[in-house]
Simulated assay, not measured.
Amino acid sequence: MELTGEKIALKSYTLERCHEFYKDYISDPAMTYDNYVYNKERVDRYYQNKVLDAERRFFAICYNNKVIGEIQLKRIDFEKLYGTLSIHLVNDTVKGRGFGTEAERLLIEYAINELGLHTIYADTIHRNYRSKHILEKLGFEHIYDDDVLAYYKYSAK
Rank of each mutant, 00 (worst) to 15 (best):
N35G: 09
N35V: 15
V37Y: 13
N39V: 14
E41Y: 04
R42S: 15
R42T: 10
V43R: 00
V43E: 05
V43A: 00
D44T: 06
D44R: 05
D53M: 02
A54C: 07
A54D: 13
E55I: 06
R56V: 06
R57C: 15
F58V: 04
I61P: 11
I61M: 09
Y63G: 09
Y63C: 06
Y63R: 09
N64P: 09
N65L: 09
N65V: 04
N65D: 14
K66S: 12
V67C: 06
V67K: 00
I68E: 02
I68Y: 01
I68C: 01
Q72N: 14
K74W: 04
I76K: 03
F78D: 11
E79M: 06
L81K: 11
L81R: 10
G83S: 14
L89I: 06
V90P: 06
D92P: 07
D92N: 12
T93G: 05
T93H: 14
K95R: 15
G96D: 09
G98K: 00
G100Q: 09
E102D: 02
R105L: 08
R105Q: 13
L106A: 02
L106H: 01
L107G: 01
L107N: 00
Y110H: 02
A111K: 02
A111D: 13
L115V: 07
G116V: 12
G116C: 08
L117R: 00
Y121F: 14
D123C: 13
R130C: 04
S131N: 09
S131P: 06
K132S: 03
